[in-house]
Write a protein that binds this DNA or RNA. Sequence first.
DNA 1: GCGCCTTATTTGTGATCACGTTTTCATCCA
DNA 2: TGGATGAAAACGTGATCACAAATAAGGCGC
Lengths: 231, 231
Amino acid sequence: MPAPVNAPPDNSVAVQVHGRLRLALMRSRFRPGEKLTLRALGGELGVSATPIRAALARLVSEGALEQHDRRSVRVPVLSDARFREVVELRMDLEGKAAARAAERAAPRDISALEAIHAAMTAARLDGRTEAMMLENERFHITLCTLAGMPVLLRLVEGLWLQCGPLNAGLKSIRFLHGPEEHPHHDVIRALHRGDGALARLAIQRDISVYADALLRRLPAMDAARGTVDAV
Amino acid sequence: MPAPVNAPPDNSVAVQVHGRLRLALMRSRFRPGEKLTLRALGGELGVSATPIRAALARLVSEGALEQHDRRSVRVPVLSDARFREVVELRMDLEGKAAARAAERAAPRDISALEAIHAAMTAARLDGRTEAMMLENERFHITLCTLAGMPVLLRLVEGLWLQCGPLNAGLKSIRFLHGPEEHPHHDVIRALHRGDGALARLAIQRDISVYADALLRRLPAMDAARGTVDAV
DNA sequence: GCGCCTTATTTGTGATCACGTTTTCATCCA
DNA sequence: TGGATGAAAACGTGATCACAAATAAGGCGC
């Protein structure tokens, strides 16, 4: 076919590709260090190189991909130190967002947050790990939304995208704490009380214990899936 | 001409355009709310639409531009609240970077910082405001580099890009404090002593007094150059 | 003189092509 | 058999084209 004939149904093809690649990145569909080529992705997704180029450019700017030299974009390797840095920044930024959210959240906002955590707990009990992690992300992002700070929200989303590839791949981090003593409950309690300092501490504890558990399992994971040894 | 004939001299045309647009944004060459069109920019820069598209996509992802609906990227208006938020985040993030830099900086790093501040002071005394603000940015960015936190550095660069358009347009903010009591001196002193807490406070004070002065002059500036009233 | 409908221009988008560079692979000589 | 060499395939890049949607312009009826 010589040109696009039918109307774009919902959104631009480029943003669709961007979303699909973003999701694939979050789920570790690509190995760290893997080189992404335009024609291969285009053939796989059934589109030409143009929207792929746009999507890759955006992902590079968002920090989700790296371009070592020009003419090769790669999935970042996310070293140990880099992961620690992302976690530290997340604790600062999400901590601030939680504190601000506690001072602003309306009851219905808190209810929405409780619903998300309930869905996450349900997925956890059913063993649907991937759905659980998706709901976990929704919890954190929604909390940041409640802070009413759009610039901060963008920053946090970017950090999630960067450390997203690590989250997938692990299967059972489900027994860090019992369902009743999950740090999210402390966050919700703090929101109900309007206690900003408590909300900050709670979300920071949540991030911290999760990251620590991830860091302990990280060497084993690296050994399991073969990371592409870079040039 | 039907196709690119000569070899790319130094860098890709797309990144050149990206840099030029980024610089133009920093210097307020575009009015807030102005719509940027592919063909117009392409004609102005003498390139086709393709590299312009890539550059605009990157700038949108970096937060330097907004796309209200699809098929129209605009220069953000940067409301009062948004500017305050960017400043608050800069204080947090650059404060952390300064503290970390104080614990890590080698003497030659501090010397480089002093040289930048000297160049900035010279530009200030000569009345070269634009050069002064450029050196000021170099000071802040270099300080963040010294923290050895690449992710944090990216975030701060993005924040500078977002509030950059405001910095230009004002001419004489030069008399906030005498040349000897500039907050940068406190930062450098703190680096020499390896005092992280002091460095954080100093850079935060620098950001704060500058932002306050800017906020006071902001309504007058908005009245002066006509902001494009959005649709 | 004013509002609505039709037409013309503009704009973003995706596909395709041409070109230069890089990488890969097969061949050949020592 | 091993390492250098040549050709060929692959890749990114920028220009160009065709098309759809949106905006602007123009003309008609009232």
